[in-house]
């Protein structure tokens, strides 16, 4: 979420500096995914401007970058909300009712998978197994894992976050 702190110029400069280091290494093209990770971390998501920048700096055609960015689910092509909710849809979670959690969230937030609420507070994604099967069903909100969820529990969590925002 550093995008809220830095302005775009600063972000672009950091991306350029990062790429400059990469270009010193062997086979710099192979670091495209590394660079996109960094760009997303700095910018919050991969905007067209950011991908254009990466293209010019790394000498990789934009169509190639677009192809890579759209192949991997980890890359976000739209701005995401302050709270990024990933509902784990791994087998263990699925067996223990992950789809019910997902449905509850859809109702509660009024958005679909891959979408962001209008107030830019919440985004929701389906995640591949995040390896916390012992706590199934789980969801991740930003970097924090919430386990043994029920429809009520996830609703409570959302409401708590909403309240926190209001009081800020």
């Amino acid at each position: 979420m550093t995008s809220h702190i830095h302005n775009q110029e600063e972000i672009n400069k950091q991306i350029k500096d990062f790429i400059a280091e990469i270009l010193k290494q062997d086979r710099p093209d192979s670091h495209l995914i590394t660079v996109l990770h960094k760009a997303q971390e700095l910018n919050g998501y991969l905007s067209r401007e950011v991908m254009d920048l990466v293209s010019q700096e790394m000498n990789i055609p934009t169509s190639t970058i677009w192809g890579v960015a759209t192949f991997y689910h980890y890359f976000k092509l739209n701005p995401i909300g302050k709270y990024n909710i990933s509902v784990c849809m791994g087998t263990a979670c699925y067996v223990k009712g992950a789809s019910e959690i997902l449905e509850t969230l859809k109702e509660e937030l009024g958005i679909g998978v891959g979408e962001t609420t209008e107030d830019m507070l919440f985004s929701m994604h389906e995640a591949r197994c995040i390896g916390a099967c012992g706590l199934a069903p789980v969801a991740m909100i930003n970097d924090k894992i919430y386990g043994e969820l029920t429809p009520k529990k996830i609703t409570d969590i959302i409401n708590k976050l909403r309240k926190e925002e209001e009081t800020k």
Binding site: I33, H73, Y74, R128
Partner: peptide
């Protein structure tokens, strides 16, 4: 280390 990006 090289990182994946979410593709099974």
């Amino acid at each position: 280390i090289r990182l994946g990006a979410g593709a099974f």
